[in-house]
């Protein structure tokens, strides 16, 4: 059963990219064999809705677990609907984080991170 990891590069020596929606690659890894396939994150270059694109890709790849840093409410909603569990990882090398995952050291993300803050109107008062 493969899991997905948001990463800065294409292999296990890359680092976990803390930004889910804007990460460079999504690594699809078999934690037993450490076989690894890198998919370019379709969310990386879009103007808005990066997390949505990335989450849709994760669901479409059929994985059920994801390791990343932060995940906003939009992506969280899609992942939850697609039955994907999210684990939070420190920004370490993917190889190291996989060890932590195997040892059950990663905590599960059960609430979405705050969405990106927008401008606030001042209002006539």
């Amino acid at each position: 059963m493969r899991i997905a990891i948001s990463a800065t590069g294409k292999d296990l020596n890359a680092y976990v990219d803390p930004r889910f929606g804007r990460c460079a690659y999504l690594l699809l890894v078999n934690p037993e064999t450490l076989e690894c396939e890198a998919v370019t994150n379709p969310g990386r270059t879009v103007g808005g809705g990066a997390g949505i694109k990335a989450a849709q890709e994760v669901v479409n790849q059929g994985v059920k677990e994801l390791i990343t840093g932060q995940c906003g409410p939009n992506a969280f909603g899609i992942l939850a609907a697609g039955g994907v569990k999210i684990f939070q990882a420190p920004g370490e090398m993917v190889r190291k984080v996989l060890e932590l995952y195997q040892q059950g050291e990663l905590s599960e993300l059960t609430v979405p991170g705050p969405s990106r803050p927008g401008p606030q109107g001042w209002g006539i008062r």
Partner: peptide
């Protein structure tokens, strides 16, 4: 173009 909709199975 704005990723305002998403379809999953």
């Amino acid at each position: 173009q704005f990723n305002a909709l998403a379809i999953i199975p």
